[in-house]
Simulated assay, not measured.
Amino acid sequence: MDKKYYWTDEDNGVVTVGLTEDGRNELGNITFVSIPKVGTQLSTTDSLLNVEADKAVSDIPSPVAGKIIDVNKKAEDDPSVLNGADKTTSWIAKIQK
């Protein structure tokens, strides 16, 4: 998936990642997600998110290398929260660089 499909916000070396409007439109309505567990080390070739949606089944690579320090539990329980534009609720994970 192209980098234009996700957003990143960095604060003190912690990068929060979510899907942009382009990403949500490309995928369609998200129905299932798999996010690595907190503590997982990722490189930029590793998958941050496995997603099933109306238009596609995709692996989304991590935009940064680092350790997952938090995941959006609401997204794991209800993947449809990732369909929203509000960054405070539709983020995927927080990664410590």
Results as ranks from 00 to 15, higher is better:
20 T>N: 12
59 D>P: 01
49 L>S: 11
51 V>S: 10
57 V>P: 12
83 N>T: 03
31 T>G: 08
96 Q>Y: 08
64 V>E: 11
21 E>F: 00
85 A>G: 11
8 T>E: 13
84 G>M: 00
28 G>T: 08
79 P>K: 04
54 D>K: 08
4 K>W: 07
3 K>T: 13
27 L>G: 07
27 L>D: 04
43 S>D: 10
18 G>K: 03
59 D>N: 13
72 N>A: 06
88 T>L: 05
6 Y>W: 11
19 L>Y: 04
57 V>H: 10
77 D>Q: 15
17 V>Y: 06
30 I>V: 13
96 Q>S: 10
6 Y>E: 04
76 E>I: 11
28 G>D: 10
8 T>F: 00
71 V>N: 01
50 N>K: 10
48 L>E: 09
40 T>L: 07
59 D>L: 04
81 V>W: 01
86 D>H: 03
72 N>C: 09
45 T>S: 14
48 L>C: 11
63 P>V: 04
46 D>K: 06
33 V>S: 04
69 I>T: 15
13 G>P: 09
17 V>D: 06
35 I>F: 06
82 L>D: 05
3 K>S: 14
71 V>K: 09
21 E>T: 12
5 Y>R: 15
10 E>Y: 00
91 W>M: 03
69 I>S: 14
14 V>K: 06
56 A>S: 13
85 A>Y: 05
37 K>I: 01
68 I>G: 03
62 S>N: 11
85 A>S: 15
88 T>K: 15
35 I>C: 14
53 A>I: 01
5 Y>N: 15
26 E>F: 14
15 V>T: 12
4 K>A: 11
48 L>I: 13
71 V>T: 13
72 N>M: 05
18 G>I: 09
63 P>G: 02
70 D>G: 00
66 G>P: 05
84 G>Q: 03
95 I>C: 04
55 K>E: 11
16 T>Y: 00
5 Y>T: 03
78 D>L: 06
20 T>W: 13
82 L>H: 03
61 P>F: 10
56 A>M: 12
68 I>P: 07
56 A>F: 02
36 P>K: 10
33 V>T: 14
29 N>S: 13
42 L>V: 07
62 S>T: 02
97 K>R: 14
27 L>Y: 03
33 V>Y: 08
69 I>A: 03
34 S>Y: 01
61 P>H: 02
63 P>W: 06
56 A>N: 11
57 V>N: 14
41 Q>W: 08
19 L>D: 02
24 R>Q: 13
6 Y>T: 02
83 N>W: 06
76 E>L: 15
33 V>P: 14
